[in-house]
Design a protein around this nucleic acid. Structure first.
Ligand SMILES: [Mn+2]
Ligand SMILES: [Mn+2]
Ligand SMILES: [Zn+2]
Ligand SMILES: [Zn+2]
Lengths: 152, 152
DNA sequence: ATAATTATTATAATCATTACAAAGTAGAAA
DNA sequence: TTTCTACTTTGTAATGATTATAATAATTAT
């Protein structure tokens, strides 16, 4: 893990961000949760176990900082809370309305891949794409549930 | 305009929504602002001139109602506020970081057109896509502005 | 060591949205 | 018409995510 921390440290320094303990830990958490697209609260709650003095404000500031420097990417998909993605390579997302998971989607479209520089003559800086629906797994399990006269 | 109001009235009834005065006015406003992708506040502020008793809650409830019934579509793009689109046909959007305009974008991609039913095996219910950048017009005007030592 | 800069923390403020309950409206039943 | 009932609108309070502000701590420069 020491080696991994050094890699993260270098990433911060390359972007001109001073590698403080809190910043390293936030980045480490994101790198360990590639598939989770964590919310601010998730980052905060988890790191609080290790850093009892950690402030929520620091998590907000740190994530905003990372976002500005392009160290992480933001995923706006639920409308109620921002999520963060260690993976800055262009890709889309799928939000399952049943289990709430956010799944990475790779399309071969030129826009989705970030290859195209403009669209309809406008200069593109960011490309965001997402789907909402029912994921493969939840859809399969739908049949196993009672028809509707279930709960309480 | 009477004829137009009747068309809107029918649209509401087709979706099983009782065509009250407030609901008709909200729908009318959206239909007259196809290119604006209005926020809740924009709808409220404008209609308040005509309906001084209008409640912001009603606008929220009405728009949520329309959204559930598929009468309008939602555009989540700024992260800070929801926007609404009278046009429910699948299309993407472009947010200009300079002028703030939200521009309709039509792509020929099967997902953008809403033709594909699944992606990576997951059932698609909604497709959302947007770009952020600098629009054609703002980009053109960039050169005309002083280099940086401008304002006070 | 002292001063200046930057980071972190704690707390309050903001802003969009939702929850809730009171008051109003329209239409059916009596 | 009057009464009853279901639905709509309104006003206000609550919620929840995010940002602003100021105090404290840590780091860097002089
Ligand atoms: Mn992702
Ligand atoms: Mn549109
Ligand atoms: Zn699922
Ligand atoms: Zn523009």
């Amino acid at each position: 893990m020491i080696t991994n921390m050094n890699i993260l440290k270098n990433r911060l320094m390359e972007k001109g961000i001073k590698p403080t303990f809190q910043r390293l830990k936030v980045l480490e958490y994101l790198s360990n949760n590639l598939k989770n697209h964590p919310t601010v609260e998730m980052v905060y709650e988890e790191l609080l176990k290790e850093i009892p003095t950690l402030s929520l404000t620091t998590v907000y500031n740190t994530l905003n900082n990372f976002l500005e420097k392009g160290l992480v990417s933001g995923v706006i998909i639920t409308g109620t809370e921002a999520r963060y993605d260690f993976d800055t390579k262009y890709h889309h997302h799928f939000l399952c309305k049943i289990c709430g998971k956010i799944i990475d989607i790779d399309l071969k479209c030129g826009y989705a891949l970030g290859e195209k520089r403009t669209v309809s003559g406008h200069r593109i800086d960011e490309v965001h794409g997402y789907f909402k629906g029912i994921c493969k797994n939840c859809y399969k399990n739908l049949g196993t549930k009672p028809k509707g006269h279930s709960s309480s």
